[in-house]
Simulated assay, not measured.
Amino acid sequence: MAIGGLTTNALLYLDNVSVTFDGFRALNALSLSIDAQEMRAIIGPNGAGKTTMMDVITGKTRPNQGVAVFEASHDLTKLDEASIAELGIGRKFQTPTVFEMHTVEDNILLALKTDRRPFPTLFSKRTKAEKERIDALLERVRLTGSRDRKAGELSHGQKQWLEIGMLLAQEPKLLLVDEPAAGMTDQETADTADLLREIAKTASVVVVEHDMVFVRDLGVKVTCLHEGSVLAEGSLDAVSTNERVVEVYLGR
């Protein structure tokens, strides 16, 4: 299906997207393509447009021009945030948001993709399928041994994993992750890279990150943004040796 004259097979395709805030152009004719089951790292200096790009994808910000096409048939610029989430796009912000007074297991239960209207929620009982799904998610995010702990007792890295698990409970097709390695120990950082690589086997993942060691550990294609546009794209080695990238970002 073509949208705005475009035909694409990519899972996510941004074309000529521009966003202006009070005269400041946060995105400048940005074009970006993400395939199904691809993980992409997005890097760039502060103010490069990384957060605004994610805001456009999730419906938080409307672009002044351009389209954001999901699954070749949905123009995200025409949809609200709830509708976009229902399509299968999940977002994890830099600061983890979990229910700290509830157990880890209950956090996952609350996030499961199921009927959450008041009546079904009040009278529902945990099914065998839900229990198996929770067990699988806890194992996937390395929190099986912490299932009965209050979420507020977890380390920063574990809270990050829990929130990722809560997003996975929604069965996303595309996961946007903002600086997942920030504040983590070296071991947690390595484990998070492993986790994201596992997720990318079944869903697309876009990782916004400043930690170049972590980006290298991911071993994926890198897109560097600058002043709202793509400055360079390719392997980390290719991008990190680009003279303009070194000048505006890595050389600082």
Rank of each mutant, 00 (worst) to 15 (best):
M1C: 09
A2P: 15
L6R: 15
T7S: 13
T8F: 07
N9W: 02
A10R: 05
L11K: 02
L11M: 15
Y13C: 14
N16P: 14
S18P: 10
S18R: 09
V19Y: 01
A26L: 04
A26H: 01
N28R: 03
L30H: 11
S33D: 13
Q37T: 06
A41N: 10
I42K: 02
I43K: 02
P45M: 11
N46E: 04
A48I: 08
A48Q: 00
M54I: 14
D55P: 14
D55G: 15
V56M: 00
V56A: 00
T58M: 11
T61V: 15
T61S: 08
T61F: 11
N64W: 11
V69P: 02
A72H: 10
A72E: 08
H74N: 14
D80F: 01
E81F: 05
E81L: 07
E86A: 08
E86G: 05
I89C: 03
G90E: 05
K92N: 06
F93H: 04
T95A: 01
F99H: 00
F99K: 00
E100H: 13
M101E: 14
M101C: 15
H102S: 12
T103Y: 03
T103Q: 01
E105C: 07
D106I: 12
N107S: 09
I108C: 13
L110N: 07
A111P: 13
L112G: 04
K113F: 10
F119S: 12
T121Y: 11
L122I: 12
L122Q: 01
F123V: 13
R126V: 13
T127L: 06
K128L: 05
A129G: 14
I134W: 08
I134H: 08
I134T: 05
I134N: 07
I134D: 06
D135E: 09
L137F: 11
L138I: 06
E139D: 15
R140Q: 09
R140V: 09
R140C: 09
V141C: 15
V141H: 04
L143A: 14
L143R: 07
L143F: 04
K150A: 11
A151L: 06
G152R: 02
E153S: 12
L154M: 08
H156S: 12
G157S: 05
Q158Y: 06
W161L: 13
L162H: 04
I164G: 03
I164Y: 01
M166I: 12
L168T: 10
Q170Y: 07
K173H: 10
K173E: 08
L174F: 08
L176G: 04
T185F: 12
T185R: 01
T189C: 10
T192D: 04
A193W: 00
D194G: 11
L195N: 02
L196V: 02
R197I: 09
E198Q: 11
E198N: 07
A200P: 07
K201V: 06
K201H: 14
T202L: 03
T202F: 02
A203L: 09
A203I: 05
A203S: 13
V207D: 03
V208E: 05
V208P: 07
V213D: 14
V215Y: 00
G219I: 01
K221L: 10
K221N: 07
V222E: 03
C224Y: 00
H226G: 15
E227R: 09
E227A: 12
V230H: 00
L231Q: 00
L231R: 00
A232K: 00
E233T: 04
G234R: 01
D237W: 00
T241G: 00
N242S: 10
E243N: 15
R244M: 12
V245M: 06
E247Y: 03
V248T: 09
V248W: 09
R252V: 15
